[in-house]
Structure formats: structure tokens, C-alpha cells
Simulated scan of single mutants.
Amino acid sequence: MSRRTRRPVSSSAAASKAGLSCPCGLPRAYDDCCGRYHSGAAAPTAEALMRSRYCAFVKGDVGYLVRTWHPRTRPEGLELDPGTRWTGLEVLAVDGGTAFHTNGTVEFRASYRGGALHEVSRFERVDGAWVYVDGEHR
């Protein structure tokens, strides 16, 4: 059975205005939120992995992005555009991706100066850990 939710989730821009420091938009400090995944803890859900990957883009953590990419779809190399300034994350829908699933999707909108990326990302478990497979831009 899969779970599909459509709910507004606070954006990272709103969280920043409230004085919270995790770029993913959840009301936690970075070290207690996505920072722990960047330091080696496994993300427990596909949504948590997607949020932590967004934070990795914000912080320019290419190593984390590569480590959390599915081996069959991982690019040979990854270069981030240093001019991109990410300004907010909005999770639009989640389907599956919990401890009871082997795959899941997360639909999100990631805003940056001058535009936004709207994507439905696919995730799978590999050796018990969630990894990003690919995404469909909307």
C-alpha cells in the first residue's frame, strides 16, 4: 500500500525568515536535520533523502550527492553551477518511500534566483539505504 499526500510544507525561505537554519525548510537546526545525513547517518525516508540532497545542492556538497545517487544512474562526474543560489524548497507530494517501501517518489519545487525546478524524483533502497534514481521535470 502506498501513501500519497498533497500538503503544503514550509519552504526553506520561510524557515530562514523564522531564524531556523536548515535549508530544507523543516523547523530544525541544520546539524539536527540534514547535516546528520551529510555526516554519514542514513536518511530514513525518501523524503528525508530528497530534502538532504536539496541541502547538499545549497551547500555545494558534491560528494554527498554522488554517494546518494543510485549506482546504475549515477553520472561519472558532477559539477555544480557556483552561480546558482537556491532560495527555497517546497515538497508537493510524497508516494511511498517509508520504512515499509522499497521505492518512492517525491514531487517538489526548488526555487533559485531567477526560477524554479519542479521535479518528481524517484528513489529506491540499495542495501537498505535510500538513493536517488532519477527525476522527471514538470
Rank of each mutant, 00 (worst) to 15 (best):
M1R: 06
S2P: 14
R3D: 13
T5R: 08
T5N: 09
R6A: 02
P8M: 00
S12I: 06
A13Q: 05
A13S: 07
A13E: 11
A14G: 00
S16L: 14
S16N: 08
S16M: 08
K17Y: 03
A18Q: 13
G19M: 01
L20K: 07
S21H: 03
C22E: 12
C22G: 08
P23R: 04
P23N: 08
P23A: 15
C24Y: 11
G25S: 10
L26G: 01
P27V: 08
R28D: 11
R28N: 10
A29S: 15
Y30D: 07
D32F: 09
C34K: 02
A41E: 15
A42S: 14
A42D: 15
A42W: 07
A43Y: 07
P44H: 07
P44G: 03
A46Q: 08
A48L: 13
A48D: 13
L49E: 04
R51C: 10
R51D: 09
R53A: 14
R53P: 14
C55V: 15
A56Y: 12
F57G: 06
G60H: 12
D61T: 06
D61Q: 12
D61V: 12
V62H: 05
V62P: 05
V62Q: 02
G63P: 01
Y64N: 06
Y64S: 06
L65S: 08
V66K: 11
R67L: 09
T68I: 03
T68N: 02
T68M: 02
W69S: 05
H70E: 08
H70S: 05
R72Y: 04
T73D: 10
G77E: 11
G77H: 11
L78W: 11
L78F: 14
E79Q: 14
L80Q: 10
D81G: 04
D81R: 11
P82A: 12
P82V: 10
R85A: 07
W86I: 01
W86P: 11
W86L: 04
T87M: 01
T87K: 01
T87H: 04
V91C: 01
A93D: 11
A93N: 07
V94G: 03
V94A: 09
G96M: 08
G96R: 03
G97M: 08
T98H: 05
A99V: 13
F100E: 14
T105V: 00
V106N: 06
V106D: 07
F108P: 02
R109E: 12
Y112G: 00
Y112S: 00
R113V: 13
R113W: 00
R113M: 01
G114A: 02
A116K: 00
L117E: 07
L117H: 07
H118D: 11
H118E: 13
H118F: 04
V120I: 10
R122S: 13
R122G: 02
R122K: 09
E124A: 03
R125L: 10
R125T: 12
V126F: 03
D127V: 01
G128P: 00
G128V: 01
G128R: 00
A129S: 11
W130H: 04
Y132Q: 02
Y132E: 02
V133G: 06
G135I: 07
E136L: 10
H137P: 10
H137V: 15
